[in-house]
């Protein structure tokens, strides 16, 4: 067995919680409502209120807080960078403190706090969605929500199918990349020494076969799909069933109320 076998794809954390049991469409709409709402919130107190509500939801989701924080880590750098940028370049309001040529203005600090909290909460909401929704349900939910747009020739089915295939092949390509890196290392490739340009050049023997391999897989997959009677979304039925029940509607209402609370504060 390969190391890590049996591990869930992506950020999904399997658990038995009320959030996991919700219809993916309800959760997607809830996150959408939160996103819109967060752009209307205009006070630190408001952000903190939304954050507190999200913390409660994390508790309900039974995703361990440490695991959840790990999901947020990649954006921490972006958050820090944008915040610093605001502090450094916004020159409105009083000077709060100065350091050599650097001056922090009150307006800059306020904007920085708002922006950092906003991004952090957006990502937290999205992370809660992906942590509690299996990827396949997520793509089913998206297809379903986008399906009214099919009338305007919006490729809702194709987008969902692409997501499904991507989910299926991410682990495969990851494994292939690992193998190719090992194989080239055995032939003397060195990925750890030299300057930036040398390191990028060292990646060529990995990226070329990985790309060629991905195209070969794509060809074979297309053949397999065609030979199994695939001809787009027309006339197709779905194996998985989504059912939007009372609790989903309730959950959605609560989700809409969270940012409303934040806005009022």
């Amino acid at each position: 067995m390969a190391p890590g076998a049996g591990r869930g794809t992506g950020q999904f954390y399997p658990a038995d919680s009320p959030l996991h049991a919700l219809d993916p469409r309800a959760k997607i709409l809830a996150v959408a409502a939160l996103v819109v709402g967060l752009f209307l919130v205009d006070s630190v107190a408001g952000f903190l209120a939304v954050g507190a509500a999200l913390l409660c939801l994390v508790q309900v989701s039974r995703v361990p807080p440490s695991t959840f924080l790990r999901l947020l880590r990649p954006v921490a750098v972006i958050v820090a960078f944008t915040a610093l940028f605001q502090v450094a370049f916004v020159r409105e309001g009083e000077v709060v403190f100065g350091l050599w040529v650097f001056q922090a203005h009150s307006e800059g600090l306020r904007l920085a706090a708002h922006l950092a909290l906003r991004i952090l909460l957006l990502v937290a909401a999205a992370a809660l969605l992906t942590a509690t929704t299996p990827p396949l349900s997520l793509s089913d939910g998206i297809e379903d929500l986008l399906s009214p747009l099919k009338r305007f020739r919006f490729p809702a089915h194709e987008i969902a199918m692409m997501m499904t295939i991507a989910l299926r092949f991410i682990p495969t390509l990851h494994e292939e990349a690992r193998k190719i890196i090992m194989a080239q290392a055995a032939r003397g490739a060195d990925f750890t020494e030299g300057g930036l340009i040398q390191r990028v050049r060292a990646l060529v023997p990995v990226l070329v076969p990985l790309t060629v391999g991905a195209f070969r897989r794509a060809d074979e997959l297309a053949e397999a799909m065609e030979s199994r009677g695939y001809r787009g979304g027309e006339g197709r039925t779905r194996y998985r069933e989504l059912s939007f029940r009372g609790r989903d509607a309730t959950a959605l209402c609560i989700a809409v109320l969270i940012p409303v609370g934040g806005i009022l504060l």
Partner: peptide, 17 residues
């Protein structure tokens, strides 16, 4: 060491570039 002990993995043609 890697030069003296040559290692060829399964399906090595996948790494031709």
């Amino acid at each position: 060491l890697r030069r003296r002990v040559g290692l060829v993995f399964q399906f090595p043609e996948q790494a031709l570039f």
